[in-house]
């Protein structure tokens, strides 16, 4: 099973760059990534640029509308993701809880749709 772990956090809740806390955050991400590699569960994983850089598009009446900003007007914004290959949700939860942002933000775990099983 493939699972996507979506990493959400409200802006300005995490450690600030150039502080020891930020250094620890990076080291924790590094450590988590190493575990994922070692256990062979990592399919992909990236951090996103700030949500200020987001552009949303939608097509209405055949016209493309382009808007500045993220889709959802929520406090917590999508900041990055991992995609894992796991046997079941218990495994996915185990790896997702290693994501350091879970300590101040929220990680949402979603199974990827498998068309061969439909």
């Amino acid at each position: 099973m493939k699972y996507l772990a979506l990493i959400y956090a409200a802006p300005d809740t995490g450690p600030v760059p150039d502080t020891p806390e930020f250094g620890k955050l990076l080291a924790d991400y590094q450590a988590a990534s190493e575990t994922y590699e070692k256990d062979g569960v990592l399919l992909a994983g990236e951090a996103l640029q700030d949500s200020d850089t987001a552009t949303s598009i939608r097509i209405r009446n055949g016209k493309t509308e382009t808007m500045d900003g993220p889709f959802a007007e929520t406090k917590e914004q999508l900041g990055g993701f991992y995609m894992f290959e796991c046997a079941n949700i218990d495994e996915a939860i185990k790896y997702a809880s290693m994501i350091p942002t879970a300590k101040y933000g929220t990680v949402e775990v979603r199974p990827i749709m498998d068309y061969s099983k439909m």
Partner: peptide, 14 residues
């Protein structure tokens, strides 16, 4: 079914 919640008795650590 879709999120594959396993049909198992949890391990000692959980």
């Amino acid at each position: 079914k879709q999120a594959a919640i396993p049909y198992v008795v949890p391990q000692r650590e959980q």
